[in-house]
């Protein structure tokens, strides 16, 4: 086989897999949003943009959108700030550093359901360790899943707990690539540790920071399992974001067209956000 034929055959295979696994489901999901369907077995009825008009006119959609932004921003800010902080600590030389580095990735290795159940036990009303600590401190008990604010804080807390190690590990790897001579030159230039962080570390981490914020934003905006396992979007929709709303609409209300319309809008919002993000923070900054 000539080299050109080899290249085309690989290209074709790649395109075929992409079409089958990514393009086809997306097209199918988008197409569902133009039909009125109450199950996957019945005959769909073409309704055009009615599903979009119906969903966009409901306040639960806008609540889910705002919840999605609160959840995504909340988790990203804490994950990135804590991730950089932990990475800076783990980048220092101290006894047992390798063990601590290994342990720090553990939460990321656990299945979501294990992390969620552990958290639920920790905040259990009678035996939860957090409940005991709060009581011992003389603070009023926290209604973790009953009060809207506390429920959002819970899903953000668990998400930060679970995915900060990913950010830490990525930043730790990026920190290894910063030449030590830059820090030494900055020391000779008269900087203190804080100035070195802002003048050397942060700018050197910028390319990786750009990618991490984007990836985390996309993942958190679409995150389903943690919220579903913890609150199922409750109480009274306080933690319900677009992914949960889409699922509930399609499989709870048997409104598959409406659920597909919510998912399609969510997809469109993310696509526009990613486009704007790359315009604002191009990867190649040089």
């Amino acid at each position: 086989m000539s080299s050109k034929a080899t290249i085309y055959s690989f290209l074709f295979l790649g395109l075929a897999v992409t079409a089958l696994l990514i393009v086809a489901p997306v097209v199918y999901a988008v197409s569902l949003s133009f039909y009125q369907m109450d199950s996957f077995v019945g005959a769909p009825r073409w309704v055009g943009l009615d599903n979009y008009a119906r969903m966009l006119s409901q306040w639960i959609f806008w609540r889910a959108l705002i919840n999605g932004f609160i959840y995504a921003f909340g988790t990203i800010i804490f994950q990135v700030v804590l991730g950089i902080g932990f990475a800076l600590v783990l980048n220092q030389v101290f006894p047992g550093r390798n063990i601590v580095r290994g342990l720090s990735i553990l939460p990321y290795l656990l299945p979501t359901v294990v992390v969620v159940l552990t958290f639920k036990w920790m905040v259990d009303g009678s035996i939860g360790v957090l409940t005991q600590v709060i009581a011992a401190l003389g603070l009023p008990p926290v209604q973790w899943f009953e009060s809207p604010g506390a429920a959002m804080a819970s899903v953000i807390l668990v998400s930060v707990w679970m995915w900060t190690p990913f950010v830490t590990t990525t930043f730790l790897a990026a920190l290894q690539t910063v030449p030590s001579s830059l820090y030494e030159a900055a020391k000779v230039d008269g900087t203190n540790a804080v100035q070195r962080f802002f003048h050397i570390t942060l700018p050197m981490l910028k390319p990786i920071l750009t990618v991490i914020v984007l990836l985390r934003a996309v993942w958190m905006f679409n995150k389903f399992d943690v919220i579903w396992l913890l609150t199922q979007g409750g109480p009274v929709g306080a933690t319900e974001h677009l992914a949960i709303l889409s699922y509930k609409q399609a499989f709870g209300q048997f409104d598959i067209g409406g659920g597909a319309a919510v998912a399609t809008i969510s997809f469109a919002i993310l696509s526009v956000a990613v486009f704007i993000y790359f315009r604002l923070f191009p990867l190649d900054t040089e």
Binding site: L182, E184, M204, E286
Partner: peptide
């Protein structure tokens, strides 16, 4: 009050 020149220049790339 010293100034140093490094082998790999150590210029701030950004």
């Amino acid at each position: 009050n010293i100034a140093m020149v490094f082998q790999n220049y150590a210029l701030y790339p950004h």
